[in-house]
Amino acid sequence: MALPLAPASAADLKVALVLPGSISDGGWNQQAYEGLKKLEAKGGFATKLSENVKQSDIPQVVRGYADDGFDLVIGHGFQFGSLFMEIGGEYPKTKFFGTTFAPKGDVPPNVMFVNTRPYDVAYGMGALAALLSKKGGVGLVGGGDNPTQQNMSKLFKIGAEATVPGLKAYAVVTGDYNDASKGRETALTMIGNGADVITHTADLTGIGAIKGAAEKGVTVMGAFSDQTSLAPTLMATSIVNDNAAIVTMVGDMAKAGTFQGGKEWAPDLAAVWYPKYKDAEYNSAEVSPETWAKFKAIWADLAAGKIDTGKYLK
């Protein structure tokens, strides 16, 4: 006699994804949506989506899914942090995942947050930029004014200056993710001050920074997606953030019963961030194999936790 298993048809895990922006934004929201589509295609998942949800409507939409008996509600962004902390206890049968750091306080047992390790990544970007610089100056153009961006700026500088002693690293949190001209001006100012490698951690603002830097003929590095097309010859590499992988991994964890509720989950660095230049890892016209090997050694140390970025933030 076989043990009773979960009923076959009802075994579909009901997953809802709530997005603060549009599924066609070419970045943060679109990637999460692609992850949801991958889950659906795998089979065993029944998915629903709400996009462009305004901050004031978020509680209503999230509670709606929980009341409808969804097994997993994914809130993609910092907007969901305190909400999930507040309402988790009211819906013990639903799992909540927020693509953001865990807020201060005790996380309910059915709520999980994630540390996608942006600070390790920022350190690594600083290290690579420093290795690529010929004149001893590098710059990072940041996005919205929030603690994540501020800490990333800080670690970019630390990573750069620790890798090449004596080098000057600039990092500016512009306060805006979507202002291309502000990004361009910031990059040009950095170049005027002697930076010859420019990268960013902002969406549209960052694209402006890359384009501005490319006009000046300095080396650039993309972020979040493969941005080779912005400056094909000057792009060294792009540090790609795979949000789709986060969504599919969380779906799989919920299904397999390995959902780490009550915690801040830390995925492998390599699973969510990787360097990409067209079909390769880097642009061999801009980066020598020796330089790349040095960077990969630092990257591996970051992934393994041998370089502890946390200590700089205390």
Partner: peptide, 9 residues
């Protein structure tokens, strides 16, 4: 409208 989006996608 939010409910409609939740239910019908």
């Amino acid at each position: 409208g939010n409910a409609m989006q939740r239910h019908s996608g």
